Amino acid sequence: MRFVFRMLSLGMLVLAIMAATLDAIQSVAASAPILTPLAVAWSAASPESIAFVADTLMNRVHPALWDPAALWVLSQPAAIVLLVVALLLWMIGYKRRRFAGRFTA
């Protein structure tokens, strides 16, 4: 399972770098900082999946999860949200080192 979480973390990190690169290119072209919200990036990539997630959260889980929590996350910059998700997935898949050391019996 650690391998799966670490690979998912790597995928999220790649997506975060791509989003940050696109924001940097747009910022240089506009001569002003531009940060693309996660909702805009997600709806451009896959509008059906964002509608599915919204429907699932509102109808099957709890409507209060969509209004304050999910809408706040979707309004944040895509690169930052993806970096946080990558960090959380990496932390789940992290293997702790032994306390005593490598060569103890």
Score class of each variant (00 low, 15 high):
residue 49 S to Q: 15
residue 6 R to H: 05
residue 89 L to I: 04
residue 4 V to Q: 10
residue 34 I to M: 13
residue 63 P to E: 15
residue 99 F to C: 01
residue 47 P to Q: 01
residue 103 F to T: 07
residue 31 S to L: 14
residue 88 L to Q: 00
residue 77 P to L: 00
residue 17 I to C: 13
residue 48 E to L: 15
residue 9 S to P: 05
residue 36 T to E: 13
residue 48 E to D: 04
residue 41 A to Y: 05
residue 6 R to K: 12
residue 39 A to R: 09
residue 85 V to R: 01
residue 91 M to H: 12
residue 41 A to K: 00
residue 28 V to Y: 11
residue 34 I to H: 03
residue 5 F to V: 01
residue 95 K to N: 10
residue 38 L to C: 02
residue 28 V to T: 09
residue 100 A to V: 10
residue 9 S to E: 02
residue 43 S to C: 05
residue 11 G to R: 06
residue 100 A to N: 03
residue 36 T to V: 15
residue 30 A to C: 01
residue 12 M to E: 14
residue 16 A to Q: 03
residue 6 R to M: 14
residue 104 T to C: 09
residue 78 A to E: 08
residue 90 W to Q: 14
residue 43 S to D: 11
residue 70 A to G: 04
residue 31 S to H: 11
residue 78 A to D: 09
residue 13 L to G: 07
residue 61 V to M: 10
residue 36 T to A: 02
residue 4 V to S: 13
residue 51 A to T: 15
residue 43 S to M: 08
residue 87 L to P: 03
residue 40 V to K: 06
residue 37 P to S: 14
residue 25 I to R: 13
residue 69 A to H: 04
residue 22 L to E: 11
residue 26 Q to R: 14
residue 47 P to V: 02
residue 73 V to H: 09
residue 44 A to E: 15
residue 100 A to F: 02
residue 84 V to H: 01
residue 8 L to N: 12
residue 97 R to L: 15
residue 3 F to L: 07
residue 35 L to Y: 12
residue 8 L to V: 07
residue 61 V to K: 09
